[in-house]
């Protein structure tokens, strides 16, 4: 079969593959979802915001006469670029990252409801499962992209505007600029898992409530509620199970010796939230009756 195919004319092979996968395939659905996303003004606005917003924020914090000491690394933020990126990271994880990912993920299913296009989409030659995964992958891909852009822009602008002096770590130790850059980059990277957790949370809410406003706002509100619960004393037993706790797991990278227990826990917790959310969302999409509208 393969041997035959390799000798075939490319055009013929294309058509053969198309005939073989008569239902269009995940790739086609994915390409279509990405195309839809690219055509939307909203996605571009979020990406542009992720690139441009850190610059004025860095300039403004750098211009403060007194550093914002009540946040971790805040006390060094006005004279150390690494500390400033970590300050912004701490702030971003409060609600910015859930919001940025939810703007696309909370809308990607619900917009079909809003425009009444489920019937059109589901009568195309792709299965519900393929459409579900295409939308999920698109939302996750967007989350990765927006996080990468935000991290790169924040790190670059902080280092260029404030500088790359050695950083004082969370054990009071001095961290050289080279190591600090690696650790700061790693810290931003560790927020990917909980960010994807929020993406999946936004997807299930988007699927469940069929309303883009709910899909976008609710993950942000839930995130803030989780931050609040996580900050309370007395009920700390549920703290490790909160999605927002993983957002703080990077603290362990800046102590001496480093600790990675919370990072591993955070990865597992984020995975659990993602799997449960996607499972629920998939079940809802699978059983959904679209004949009504």
């Amino acid at each position: 079969m393969t041997a035959v195919q390799t000798h075939m004319d490319p055009a013929v092979r294309e058509s053969t593959v198309a005939v073989e996968r008569r239902r269009g395939g995940l790739g086609a659905a994915l390409r279509f979802e990405v195309r839809k996303l690219r055509a939307q003004y909203r996605g571009w606005a979020v990406l542009a915001g992720a690139v441009l917003a850190p610059i004025p924020i860095v300039v403004i914090i750098n211009g403060q006469s007194r550093p914002p000491k009540d946040t971790l690394f805040g006390r060094f933020a006005t004279d150390n670029g690494f500390a400033l990126t970590l300050l912004i990271l701490g702030f971003a994880t409060q609600w910015v990252l859930p919001l940025l990912t939810a703007i696309v993920a909370g809308d990607i299913f619900a917009s079909e409801d809003q425009h009444g296009t489920w019937k059109t989409v589901l009568t195309r030659s792709t299965s519900r499962a393929q459409i579900f995964w295409a939308k999920t992958l698109t939302a996750c891909g967007f989350a990765v992209l927006v996080l990468t852009l935000l991290a790169a822009s924040t790190i670059a602008s902080s280092l260029l505007i404030v500088g790359h002096q050695p950083l004082t770590g969370l054990s009071g130790q001095t961290i050289g600029a080279g190591t600090a850059l690696q650790l700061v980059t790693a810290s931003w990277a560790t927020t990917l898992a909980p960010t994807l957790g929020f993406t999946c949370l936004a997807i299930v809410l988007s699927v469940w409530f069929r309303n883009p406003a709910v899909g976008i706002a609710t993950p942000v509100v839930l995130g803030m509620v989780m931050v609040l619960i996580g900050g309370l004393g007395g009920i700390e037993i549920i703290r490790p199970l909160l999605l927002t706790t993983s957002f703080e797991a990077w603290h362990g990278l800046f102590t001496q010796p480093r600790f990675t227990g919370p990072l591993v826990e955070g990865l597992l917790v984020s995975a659990a939230w993602s799997v449960l959310s996607l499972g629920a969302a998939f079940a809802i999409v699978r059983r959904r009756d679209i004949t009504g509208g």
């Binding site: 690394f73 006390r75 969370l170 054990s171 009071g172 362990g252 800046f254 102590t255 227990g261 919370p262």
Partner: peptide, 14 residues
């Protein structure tokens, strides 16, 4: 700024 006047630290919960 005196670094000892006020300082932050974190510890491993495990």
């Amino acid at each position: 700024t005196n670094p000892l006047f006020e300082f932050d630290g974190c510890f491993d919960p495990h």
